[in-house]
């Protein structure tokens, strides 16, 4: 598991039903591309997050397949519709099998 992986997500606390909200996510991760070499000339093996998903109450908002060309500390911004109060679930899948999760509740009012 990559060291010090910490997801950060920005979701408004409340919205009106049917509103579109902007979600910003950032996760600290080196996203080692597998192209770099260390000081001895050995290739540093690839270690990236290869998939990111966002769901709201079990329904998909966005599903991103990620390749080594995504920058260190992957950042995503997208928009979601909020039909009712509930919970956003964010999941990152690491190459090494680790899964990082974060949830954010949102109220409708």
């Amino acid at each position: 598991m990559a060291e010090g992986v910490r997801p950060r997500v920005k979701v408004p606390r409340s919205a009106s039903a049917g509103d579109a909200i902007t979600i910003k996510t950032l996760i600290s991760h080196p996203m080692e591309s597998g192209q770099r070499k260390d000081s001895d000339g050995n290739t540093i093996p690839r270690s990236i997050i290869n998939r990111f998903t966002c769901e709201f109450n079990g329904e998909s908002v966005v599903d991103v397949k990620m390749e080594p060309a995504i920058s260190t500390n992957p950042y995503f911004e997208f928009e979601a519709t909020v039909p009712e109060a509930g919970e956003f679930k964010f999941t990152w899948y690491d190459d090494d099998g680790s899964v990082y999760e974060e949830t954010k509740a949102i109220e409708v009012g």
Binding site: A20, I21, S33, Q35, E55, F56, E59, S60, V61, V62, D63, V64, K65, M66, E67, P68, A69, I70, S71, P74, Y75, F76, E77, F78, E79, A80, T81, P83
Partner: peptide
Amino acid sequence: NPTPPVATFTFGPLAASHYASTRIR
């Protein structure tokens, strides 16, 4: 790039606008 793929965004039923922003190498 040495490997051309960057990312594939698949939008679900709750995606409000089919828009995404990220940072790439």
